[in-house]
Computed example of a mutant assay.
Amino acid sequence: MYSTDRHTSALVALPRHNVEDPTNGVEAVKYKSDAFEPWVAEDVAKFCTTWQIGTRQRLAFELLLCSGLRRSDIVRAGRQHMVGNTFSMRTQKTGAEMTVEFPDRLMSVIAQTQTGDLAFIGGENGQPFTTESFGNWFRKHCTKAGVEKSAHGVRKLSATLAANAGASSHELMAQYGWATSRQAETYTKQADRKRLGVRASKLVAEQIEVELSPHLNPSAKKTAKS
């Protein structure tokens, strides 16, 4: 709606009232984000170069990587959960029983590190961490190593390694304490896609040799005819 300004003889737009906003009632698009980025090989190299075997920081990393424990469980994990090399614990978050076998390398790291009385990883006073204090402590030492990631990112790396090696959804559930297969399948699907992609590419390469090889090298035909 417009009116004419007496002084300028120009059309001036009048404010419009009660105009309906077309975005009313439309929900904003929600983007799925992953707050905890998984570690990669370069992160592992930086951390292990900074924190040598014998330090609590290195023991915490090795435990996270080999067991895949959550922060809420690693602060409680201790020798009371061990029978030989086998570690079993009921997870705090889901109540699921998880069981893993610690490799000899991890057992050696534990033997070479001063541990707490009630847990493998303890604070300066020897007492166990709380979930939050452990997370903050570990992230601080990650930053010192040049790794801007978290303890949960190590758990994600551990699950990725297991899935890439062919672990099934139920095997992942048993190790990582998941109550349903939904979480496990996020890793197995990614691993399966990689394996299937590699397998398919090999099949393509084989068929190229069988069906297209002569066409890809026309000079071979001329040589054969001569």
Rank of each mutant, 00 (worst) to 15 (best):
T4D: 11
D5F: 05
H7V: 09
H7K: 12
H7L: 12
A10G: 07
A10T: 15
L11P: 01
L11I: 01
L11T: 04
V12H: 09
V12E: 12
V12Q: 13
L14S: 13
H17K: 13
N18F: 00
E20L: 12
D21C: 06
T23Y: 10
T23G: 02
N24L: 10
N24M: 05
V26A: 09
E27V: 08
A28I: 08
A28S: 11
K32S: 08
S33E: 15
A35T: 15
A35V: 14
A35C: 10
W39L: 11
V40S: 07
A41C: 00
E42K: 10
E42C: 01
E42G: 03
A45N: 09
A45G: 04
T50Y: 01
W51D: 06
I53S: 12
I53A: 13
T55A: 04
R56Y: 00
Q57N: 11
R58F: 02
L59K: 09
A60K: 03
A60Y: 03
F61D: 02
L63K: 00
L64D: 02
L65R: 12
C66Q: 14
C66D: 12
S67R: 08
S67V: 09
G68W: 06
L69C: 15
R70W: 02
R70D: 05
R71W: 00
R71E: 10
V75N: 03
R76G: 03
R76W: 08
A77F: 14
A77W: 04
R79F: 02
R79P: 01
R79W: 03
Q80F: 01
M82G: 04
V83P: 00
G84V: 01
N85T: 04
S88L: 02
M89H: 12
M89R: 05
R90C: 02
R90F: 02
R90L: 07
T91R: 09
T91M: 13
Q92W: 04
K93W: 01
T94P: 00
T94E: 06
A96D: 07
A96W: 00
A96S: 10
E97D: 09
E97R: 12
M98V: 10
V100Q: 08
V100K: 05
E101L: 02
P103E: 08
R105A: 15
V109S: 10
V109E: 09
Q112E: 15
T113S: 14
T115L: 04
T115M: 05
G116D: 03
G116V: 07
D117Y: 08
D117R: 14
L118F: 06
L118P: 04
